[in-house]
Simulated scan of single mutants.
Amino acid sequence: MTPRECCLLLVSVMTSIAGQFFLKTGANKLGKFITENDITHINRIITIPELIIGLLFYALGALAYILLLTRVNLSIAAPSASLVYVFSVLLGYFVFKEPIPITRIVGLSLIIGGVILVVWKK
């Protein structure tokens, strides 16, 4: 990938991560979903600013990904976008104090290794 393509990928991944951050923050405000409060939760989604901001960040990430797809093959872009998983786990750990079990670390290492192999050019 060229530097410009790497930047598009980075923008796509980082805006998706920002979207996840805001969606998680908004979901925490929303509270736990149960079948008895389904309509209430659906109605409250549009009133919680963090959820709207999260969706907007996801939209920006999708736009950057579409632009990336105009420049690189899907077989490179899609696996590269899986870096969102890696950063999501780090976000969960550092911001939301979620644990990272060793099996998840192994899985994330495999994702990173796979992305390196997919984008590697001889």
Rank of each mutant, 00 (worst) to 15 (best):
H41R: 13
A18Y: 00
S12T: 04
P3D: 10
L30W: 04
C6N: 12
G114H: 03
T25M: 09
F33P: 02
Y93T: 04
S16H: 09
L8Y: 05
L9T: 03
A64T: 02
L83C: 03
K122A: 10
G114V: 09
E98H: 02
G107F: 09
V115T: 01
A81K: 13
I48V: 07
F87R: 05
I39G: 00
M1W: 01
W120H: 11
S109G: 12
S16G: 11
N43V: 06
A64Y: 03
G54Y: 01
T47C: 11
I46G: 12
I53T: 14
S80Q: 12
P101I: 15
G61M: 08
I34P: 00
L9D: 00
S12A: 15
P49E: 09
L90N: 02
G26I: 04
L69N: 05
L108P: 00
E98Y: 03
P49N: 12
C7V: 15
L9N: 06
L110E: 04
M1N: 08
S16I: 05
T25Y: 13
V84T: 14
C7N: 04
V95R: 09
I112A: 12
E98W: 02
L68C: 08
V11Q: 02
K121N: 05
V13L: 05
L51Q: 03
T15S: 12
G107V: 05
R71F: 01
L30A: 01
G31M: 08
V106N: 05
I66N: 04
F21S: 07
V89A: 15
Y58P: 00
K29I: 05
L91P: 00
G19W: 07
I102W: 11
Y85G: 08
V11C: 10
T2Y: 04
I102M: 14
T25V: 09
S109Y: 05
I105F: 07
L8S: 06
C7F: 15
S80A: 15
I100C: 01
I39W: 07
M14R: 00
F33Y: 14
T70H: 10
